[in-house]
């Protein structure tokens, strides 16, 4: 009897996961057929949502999809590489302002401006990451916090960024004669961006670089001993995260047609980070879920009036209390 228990423990010494409803739900994904079916259901739901709900809901859902892109980007920095970034909105701002300024000052056109905006964001990633990635993560958090504020203050004070009033009259793009201007059209643009963001995230996670992020996050010395250049690998995470942020910012700017410094506040960075932590750092479906909860939560609670943010906050606290590593369970046991 005791022997039996001991041998079982030896075979499976990992703390067993409580068999919660979420875990059972997740078991569905172990079967590839069911997994692809689930993906198809989600894609169909995303495709028909604007037809089922009104225009107001479509705008909110567009915002949720923007958050999906931003959260997946921050997830690479925080979830994969383990670097706490409290100023992620800065990259979002760089993308948005770059496209707005280029649209205003040059005749490049929207699509030609995108590469410049991405390069600007990547450069910002290198500038902030290069000197600071040797710091421990708590120091890094402070530096990124400062960086986020510097970007916002610069935007508020520079002439080229339109100072406090920002930049308005950003032209909406056309693609092969299709002028993208209605909320529904933008919804589909963001849906497409989200799909690309998910595919890129999955592919990065299952790659040499993606594994290197995890190695460095778990044990920097062991990773170095395996021949991994930790500074370089972290910098790659930073730059890729900033490109995600910039892509979100670029389409955010043309969607609204106007941007101002207050769109890129510290609260914005915190909300994105919160969605990532809430859903489960490093877990793509969790991060997507987190993005939707953060955007849709306050909307769904609108009937509560003044109490809604309080109720929402208590809800978030309860989730973190019972699922400290995020809503989405870990796959491995």
């Amino acid at each position: 009897m005791a022997d039996d228990a001991a041998s079982r423990r030896r075979r499976d010494p990992a703390p067993s996961r409580p068999n919660t409803g979420v875990a059972q739900l997740l078991a569905v994904f172990d079967d590839p057929r069911k997994f692809w079916l689930a993906i198809a259901v989600v894609l169909v739901a995303v495709a028909v949502a604007p037809l089922l709900f009104g225009q107001y809901a479509t705008v909110i859902l567009t915002n949720a999809l923007l958050y999906v892109v931003l959260c997946l980007g921050l997830n690479i920095v925080v979830g994969y590489a383990g670097l706490l970034d409290l100023g992620y909105a800065a990259f979002f701002a760089v993308g948005a302002y770059a496209v707005a300024i280029l649209g205003q000052q040059t005749a490049l056109g929207f699509w030609a401006a995108i590469p410049f905006a991405l390069v600007a964001a990547a450069a910002a990633g290198v500038i902030i990451g290069g000197p600071t990635l040797r710091l421990r993560s708590d120091y890094l958090a402070i530096v990124t916090l400062g960086f986020g504020e510097i970007v916002r203050f610069s935007a508020r004070n520079l002439e080229i960024t339109g100072a406090a009033s920002g930049i308005s009259g950003i032209e909406q793009p056309s693609l092969f004669g299709w002028h993208i201007d209605s909320p529904t059209e933008f919804y589909y643009v963001f849906a497409l961006l989200s799909v690309f963001a998910v595919i890129a995230s999955v592919r990065l996670a299952n790659s040499r670089l993606g594994r290197a992020w995890l190695y460095v996050r778990h044990d920097e010395d062991a990773a170095e001993a395996m021949g991994i250049d930790r500074v370089r690998v972290k910098l790659a995470a930073y730059v890729i995260g900033s490109i995600y942020g910039a892509i979100g910012g670029i389409f955010f700017a043309v969607n609204l047609g106007a941007i101002s410094p207050e769109s890129f506040s510290f609260e914005q960075s915190v909300l994105i980070l919160m969605a990532v932590i809430l859903g489960g750092m490093g877990k793509i479906p969790g991060v997507i879920l987190g993005a939707f909860i953060i955007v849709l939560g306050p909307e769904l609670l609108r009937d509560l009036g003044e109490l809604r943010l309080l109720v929402f906050a208590v809800g978030l606290l309860l989730i973190m209390l019972f699922r400290p590593s995020g809503i989405w369970p870990s796959r491995k046991s």
Binding site: S207, R208, L209, R211, A212, Y215, A222, M226, G227, I228
Partner: peptide, 9 residues
């Protein structure tokens, strides 16, 4: 992890 330093992608 060991193969990281022998690959490039």
């Amino acid at each position: 992890a060991g193969m990281h330093c022998r690959t490039h992608a």
